[in-house]
Amino acid sequence: MAAAEPLVFPLGHAMGPFHQQRDAPPAYWVVRLGWDSPLLPDRATADVWALAHGHPETAGRTPWTRTELCRAASAAGVSDPDAVLGGLLERGLVAEVTPGTDDAATFAGTHRVQSLLLGLGELPDRPGVDGIGLLGMPALAQVPLGTYEFWQWGHLWPTLTEAAAGLAEMAAQAPEHAPEEADPVQVLDRVLHELHRLLSVHAVYLDRSLAVADAQR
């Protein structure tokens, strides 16, 4: 059986474009990552980095891989998305991660999640589904309880590894829980597979752990 293609994850929080003059096109785009503010030097790079977040309509159903990202980037007019993606990978602004591997464990131990937007609670017309978004507007993300709890609590831990362990410990305290809900390894695997449902609507962003950020400062 062929190995699964790695998932593609963007790293950092978008700070927006920088215009050197009023009404001029952006000179570059800024990303906040750890203690750094790396720049995306052109539209193609900014577009591919943005597309690494996934697409809301397919997130959770279609794994967001290099193949899917490059297909979407080509459709958006990027002439050589694979080369652009390669440059972002080299700079550490995008990561390729295969859940369940040693590399995934290393990634999870050196990165953290930061939550954005607001929790809207269980949707009245969809029992068991929780919304994330902005007050007074339709939910941008509609997710199962496990994903909602990751969004709600995951940022309190310094790494994704510790977040998965903490969520597993919380689940184990419930009188009725599935075995996989209390297994940190399986929780991390689920988190990685679900991340694009949150990334694609900017409900979270991925950052370096503070320990890594401090070491690179």
Rank of each mutant, 00 (worst) to 15 (best):
A3P: 06
E5V: 04
P6R: 05
P10W: 06
P10I: 04
G12D: 05
A14I: 08
F18G: 05
H19N: 14
D23W: 12
D23M: 11
G34F: 07
W35I: 02
D36I: 01
L39N: 07
R43Q: 14
V48W: 07
A50S: 15
A52L: 10
A52D: 05
T58R: 10
T62V: 14
T65D: 05
R66E: 11
R66Q: 10
T67N: 04
E68T: 10
L69P: 02
C70H: 09
C70K: 03
A72Q: 13
A76P: 01
P81Y: 03
A83Q: 13
A83G: 02
L88G: 02
E90A: 14
G92E: 00
E96K: 00
A104E: 00
A105T: 08
T106A: 04
T106Y: 07
A108R: 02
T110M: 00
T110R: 05
Q114V: 15
L117A: 08
D125G: 04
R126V: 08
G128P: 10
V129A: 06
V129H: 08
G133Y: 10
A139M: 10
A141C: 07
A141T: 07
V143I: 12
P144T: 06
L145W: 13
G146L: 10
G146V: 09
Q152H: 11
G154H: 06
L156G: 08
L156R: 14
P158C: 02
T159H: 03
T159G: 02
T161K: 00
A163Y: 03
A165F: 11
P175S: 06
P175Y: 11
E176C: 03
E176V: 15
E176I: 12
E181N: 03
V185R: 14
R190M: 09
H202F: 15
V204A: 06
A213T: 07
